[in-house]
Design a protein around this nucleic acid. Sequence first.
DNA 1: CCCTCCCTACCAACTAGTAGGGAGAACGTC
DNA 2: GACGTTCTCCCTACTAGTTGGTAGGGAGGG
Lengths: 192, 192
Amino acid sequence: MNTPSTKADDILRCARTLIVRGGYNSFSYADISGVVGIRNASIHHHFPSKADLVRRLVAQYRQEAEAGLTELERNVADPLEQLRAYVGYWEGCIADASHPFCVCAMLAGEIPVLPEAVAVEVRAHFRGLSAWLASVLERGVAEARLTLTGSAGDNAEIFMATVHGAMLSARAYGDPGMFGAITRPLLQRLAA
Amino acid sequence: MNTPSTKADDILRCARTLIVRGGYNSFSYADISGVVGIRNASIHHHFPSKADLVRRLVAQYRQEAEAGLTELERNVADPLEQLRAYVGYWEGCIADASHPFCVCAMLAGEIPVLPEAVAVEVRAHFRGLSAWLASVLERGVAEARLTLTGSAGDNAEIFMATVHGAMLSARAYGDPGMFGAITRPLLQRLAA
DNA sequence: CCCTCCCTACCAACTAGTAGGGAGAACGTC
DNA sequence: GACGTTCTCCCTACTAGTTGGTAGGGAGGG
């Protein structure tokens, strides 16, 4: 299961970086062709339209996210540590500025102007992430590792929203440390 | 101090609605001219460039926000109730879909691709809002109306981030009620 | 022989922005 | 109070550059 780094993958990876920077309408085919080393029109061979490109990009992102969480569950047993690892992953991404924003959080803000096919994928990511968080929280309560006020589902939504808001604040202030400053108390509160 | 509804105001109001929908790069002068009833080129008479238009738009938005919070402080004495009123304001905006997103939260996500002059205003809004929230929280603690874990400043950032994240989730799910579902526990926790 | 991949060469529509002019209100001045 | 001048606001007409997307062809491997 190696990755021969095809042009299509290069295009997806480049587009992802561009979306993370400024969203759906902030990049063009020209931006991609320059970086990937392919002609503008050739992108259409792999992705008929921009909507299709981004739809598949988000689908791939969701798949990777799901795979990442599955592996996280395999490597880390404790629910609280799982949450810490999840937050820590993003803390790292923001600190080294590699992917300092969630693709779907970025696109979610633009949903009113997004192609419906893309919006569907974005919504699916939110639901999937929320469901995973809820399951972790639920197990954490069952194992007496963390205590909640309210349902696991409600707390999952709060958790997710706070993480997204922390990304936004880190970007707004231009201060990577802001993400940790907001998410650390979130984790501490659950651990109590 | 009446507002004669000049064309410049119409342009600003229209642009604000468009930015709330999809951000800086999601709208063009043509979108504005169609709604406001003015020719494309005439917009340049009032605002030399798009960057200038949005910069002044955000400056106006900040001014209105500051005025709103000042009036809120005059009408509501209790710190906790002030926070409730602030959240309630946004809950209303999201429910009636009039301005279902904070202009600056929207633009903050796009900061890497924003004109610097606009980014400066957006950052200033974040700092201003955070400072107001911190002052309210501090007074709330002093008056024994609410209890915090950690500093007022840290809690202000958490509060703001959660509210922004709640806007995002409400939009992502297409469910206005999601905003309240996330922010209500936030207020309850502080009231404890 | 076809299929995959990428190319050149287009395209119409749209992007922000410029040049220059006209109508009319505002203003001083004789 | 009549007269030019200036200023505000908006217009038509235009531009250069970019947008996503199409048509058709060529190279090369299965």
